[in-house]
Nucleic acid binder design. Structure first.
Ligand SMILES: [Mn+2]
Ligand SMILES: [Mn+2]
Ligand SMILES: [Mn+2]
Ligand SMILES: [Mn+2]
Lengths: 218, 218
DNA sequence: ACCTATTTTTAGACAAGTCTAAAAATTATT
DNA sequence: AATAATTTTTAGACTTGTCTAAAAATAGGT
């Protein structure tokens, strides 16, 4: 069995692995978990003992097959709970993360399978992130950051890169929610801002926003 | 904020207080939590520092107003989650306890209030135990152990004293579930067993069972 | 290749929660 | 009231997970 803390480390390493595919550095884990590098080194040794990560001193870690499965399962639980909170309990997408961070550690296979069924076996969480299946496999859909679209390209909002409540509430205020159709009217080379069309309304989108919103081109 | 462990101690003391109303002994807490008396003494000191129990060395503890509220709230969460598991996720009444034991420690007022609403503000858990309201008040219904009924008395099954899955599964096999009408046909003085009528069928009930099943007389 | 800046690991400490074994206090028995 | 049995507390130790400060290794720049 793995402790809450161990699960959080595995999850962090899993997420970091999606970007770099090299050994995951001690510092990057520390930053993600808001802890100190020395704590990370300690924990990594323990996880290495348990055969869920491979550790080469001074050269970072990567997950073993088993470690990867455990991490994917925690992420599966996290995202299913997020869907539950939004679909069944009227939470908004910017309120779910902290609660899911707790719920993801509940140990009961039946519980999460029943939640999965109750929700109709959803494939994505409220932020557009894919939900791993029971074996830990997850299919990534084809999506692009808004910032990579060119003038006149169209698409549907399918996800966010930053799930902070500040960003999500900002999107809410602008009327941007997942599923909405958008079209790029203009790219401003000057400040990398965008002019887009959404709900038949023209909207100005800063560089920062464009770098955190995923679009599925149509 | 209170840790998972602290919450479990408060809950144990709360439950023990329902029976004795004298100072709760170190040993009884240790037994309930399956830990050692020395560990209990340590924890009690900490809880006393935090003003949630009153502690007199060698003479046991009792909850303060605040401690009682915290305990009632944990119990409220435990029982609401149990109802959720049975009503919404097809758990049977003998499967819910261990999962609820984990879920009761999730910290999110909104979460539990929404669960409460989703369930239609239930007043009792699947074992017939009352659910405390938001202020920690709980109304006890008038119920008697089957073992206290006399010949020809009638009533409805409203609760169990022992919630172990062994006992609950035993009741299931006998066809005894909450809400069912029963009538005492005979009391055997020899072994304190009972002969009862349930679903128009005659059933023999041992002393042990009669001591763990609550009836609301009608 | 050498020096410097950065990253990572080690060493030692601490808080929370638990345990065993021994001492102290309470309660029960004669 | 004295002694025996039981309960409770203390003392010291251990585990998990964390931290700070110092040492060691790596990576970068000239
Ligand atoms: Mn978490
Ligand atoms: Mn999410
Ligand atoms: Mn219960
Ligand atoms: Mn419980």
């Amino acid at each position: 069995m793995f402790s809450q803390s161990e699960e959080n480390y595995l999850k962090a390493i899993y997420h970091l692995s999606a970007i770099s595919d090299k050994g995951i550095s001690t510092n990057s884990i520390a930053e993600k978990l808001e802890t100190k590098a020395s704590s990370v080194t300690d924990m990594i040794k323990k996880l290495s003992e348990k055969k869920v990560v491979v550790y080469k001193k001074y050269h970072g870690v990567h997950l073993t097959e088993e470690g990867s499965k455990i991490a994917a399962n925690v992420i599966r639980k996290h995202r299913l709970w997020e869907v539950f909170l939004v679909d069944k309990l009227n939470f908004s997408w910017d309120e779910v993360h902290d609660v899911a961070e707790q719920l993801e550690h509940i140990k009961s296979p039946k519980l999460i399978n029943q939640i999965d069924a109750l929700l109709g076996f959803p494939t994505h969480d409220p932020h557009g992130d894919p939900i791993p299946d029971k074996d830990g496999n997850l299919k990534t859909i084809d999506k692009s950051l808004l910032s990579t679209l060119s003038k006149n390209e169209k698409g549907i909002c399918v996800g966010v890169d930053d799930s902070s409540s500040e960003f999500l509430q900002f999107l809410d205020r602008k009327g941007i929610t997942l599923g909405k159709q958008i079209k790029v009217l203009e790219r401003e080379d000057f400040d990398d801002s965008f002019s887009i069309l959404i709900d038949d309304k023209k909207l100005s989108i800063s560089k920062k926003i464009a770098n955190n919103l995923y679009i599925k081109k149509t």
